[in-house]
Amino acid sequence: MQSFTYERAASAEQAAAAVAARPDAKFISGGTNLLDLMKLEIERPAHLVDISRLPLDRIEETAAGGLRVGAQVRNSDLAADPRVRSRYPMLTQALLAGASAQIRNKASTSGNLLQRTRCPYFYDRNMPCNKREQGSGCAALQGFNRMHAILGASEACIAVHPSDMAVAMSGLDARIETISPGGETRAIPIGDFHRLPEATPHVETVLGHGEMIAAVTLPPPPPGRQVYRKVRDRASYAFALVSVAAIVEKSGDRIRSARIAMGGVAAKPWRATEAERMLAGAAASDGAFTDAAEAALAGAIGHGGNDFKIPLAKRTMRHTLAAAVESA
């Protein structure tokens, strides 16, 4: 690990200003991903601003009937909150499908959103990686790429975003509130928060340097049954090959509305908007789910090792939609 100086932030504004003042400074909260990468010298901050004790650790009701989740709420506390469990069960399911209990006890809401990819070539400093070292190339394109992206990737990068939580939040239309060094705030729809790789895979979000996440706001729970389903290589403590978060609202035998987000398939949580449009008003049948899954994966591209993800994602989506409809 490279040497760094450390300070504990006194307030959100001060933390943002402290990071903004130095290009080599970073926020640290749970640290479960950042320290892992610092040990490998993939992340090399010269200054750390510890925001873990800022009073951003509460989950509050919003006037609109949703919840405002402070950026420092730990993943385990968010998953266990009775309001989340009863009103946003898909979010609890997604959180509990991710990492281990020890890591969930440490990892923060904002850190989960900002975690880096687990692409093995990003982690291997002997291999080219455009995300780690701009212009060096992408070793995954011709390499071991069974975990990699099938949607929204580029010739520069086919890494996926590893979060489960963010996939559920995408399906729930969460908004990410930030605070900037000058004290200005903004709310970013989660769909606009992460960036696709294009030619600049090292730029992963729309955040500016020193801009800090203060909270994630969940709108009131949408009508319908929520289901999060994750397919992975092990029964526990493994990243998703594919995951699907679905909310389906039924009216009689027909679907009134559906929301679908996929994980493990792209550099960001992937909303299947075309599939959602097709399902609105359709009969709640396996045929409709199959058509929706085909539409959702219509633009998918495999890279050899991950070709299997395309049919896997379709099947996972069909099954998740069927499960959501069963008791909707």
Partner: peptide
């Protein structure tokens, strides 16, 4: 030393964490 094995687990405020992944 990367939070994957759990051998370093300790309790902080009664909650289990990986002591290798925190400063």
């Amino acid at each position: 030393d990367h939070g994957q094995c759990g051998a370093c687990t300790v309790l902080v405020g009664g909650r289990r964490i990986n002591s290798c992944l925190t400063l």
